[in-house]
Design a protein around this nucleic acid. Structure first.
Lengths: 233, 233
DNA sequence: TCAAAAGTGTTGATATTACACCCATGC
DNA sequence: GCATGGGTGTAATATCAACACTTTTGA
């Protein structure tokens, strides 16, 4: 096999920011490291890219190993490549972020990795440049959620509109008007009334909806524009 | 020095999509390759990451080598990492895209690299996965330009509002209403009237503006939201 | 004086906001 | 009955889109 003459072959890692939502707060799945380097400290879930493995497949593998989940929302965020970002050896890290339905996870897999769901507001200091990765992932999540309806990715299969509202309030760390939010969501026609009611609620039981997945596919590719008079193809 | 035991060190390349605007059409700076592999075909400008070089610095180096430009708008797009994307050897490519003021370029540097400005609408077929890279860069440009005022990055130092409008029409491949566009841009207070007039115009000479760079910095970090009632920090 | 491009003004339609009011549930 | 949270309605306001009209310039 022919090779390039360029000498610098570099270790390629992947790191994964995993967002979840427990009904109240936005959460991160973090690892309390019991292995070197930086054993005892907190970090993101990561791994190395194998020689005969597509980059995207490696990200899916890492997410699957930790959570037992496939077919989640998984998007490449950015590649971090400062020379000294990893003190052990020059390593660039391709960072992905995932949105998971926290109720579908494999609890044993998570325990086996010594991983814990931590409220974003209580995030501990992380190793290397993992803090910057989380910062950027949150920024990207806010971006995406402003243009696409990806809040649903964090919801269970059936959910009420007030529950969905809490996701958005958590993402943007703000308060929304219940009545306006409800009307806006219903007008998207992304929700299908299941006919069931939320039995967990203490007071009035809200309607349980599920996502209209076909309509949702459109919302993932379409987007809202800064120039509303534009019609984008 | 300690090393990781993981065996797979991989060649890391960078590729750069360079957008420019000539007053009428959105253009790409492409290379007619006179070197292997794929000599004779068209490609993006690229290079390899060196062992003691930050990723971001490598992207800037590659852009500088080709255009003589520094301090341009340069943003990491995504990393492409399919196993077979480069037939010579397993190589992942970190892709950046740049917006340049076409009048500030170093023509000799461009000639030396056998590079040409090609209208986006006349883009030839490119090697490897470079077509997909361009597609995604255009998508990202449309995204960014919808939320931030980066259209200015493609303009000369002094420009008229109708010229700026042509940039946006080129990015979104659409027509905009002159009067509404003008009012919207002026309301941002991003423009400073230079007092000069556009001497190139054949008919009525338009006002030449320059960018209010302080205000522009805000527009780069702020963004417009899908939920207008949100006040984002 | 006419065509072409630039600049300014107005208005109806639409979307957004900030409310008020009613309903269901458990104590 | 009453506190709590869910569901629906409406009116004032802000924004957007689609226009008409005026100004400047060169031929």
């Amino acid at each position: 096999m022919i090779h390039y003459t360029h000498p610098s072959r570099i270790l390629v890692a992947l790191d994964c920011i995993i967002f979840g939502f427990d009904g109240e707060e936005l959460k991160l799945l973090l690892i309390k490291r019991n292995f070197d380097p930086e054993s005892g400290k907190w970090s993101l879930m990561g791994g190395f890219l194998n020689e005969y493995e597509d980059l995207e497949a490696a990200a899916q593998r890492i997410l699957y190993d930790l959570t037992g989940l496939r077919n989640n929302y998984l998007e490449q965020l950015q590649t971090f490549g400062a020379v000294k970002r990893d003190p052990v050896e020059r390593t660039i890290s391709v960072v992905y972020y995932a949105l998971v339905n926290i109720q579908q996870q494999d609890i044993n897999a998570i325990k086996a990795h010594n991983a814990y769901w931590i409220n974003l507001s209580e995030k501990p200091d992380l190793i290397f440049d993992h803090n910057a990765m989380v910062d950027q992932a949150l920024r990207q999540l806010r971006y995406k959620a402003a243009l696409h309806a990806i809040g649903f990715e964090l919801m269970p299969d059936k959910f009420t509109i007030p529950q969905l509202q809490k996701v958005y309030e958590a993402i943007y760390n703000t308060q929304l008007d219940r009545r306006n939010f409800s009307r806006k969501i219903i007008s998207t026609e992304l929700l299908i009334d299941t006919g069931d009611k939320d039995t967990n609620s203490v007071t009035k039981k809200g309607k349980l909806y599920r996502l209209n997945t076909e309509k949702y596919q459109q919302y993932l590719t379409d987007y809202v524009s800064f120039f509303p008079e534009l019609t984008l193809s």
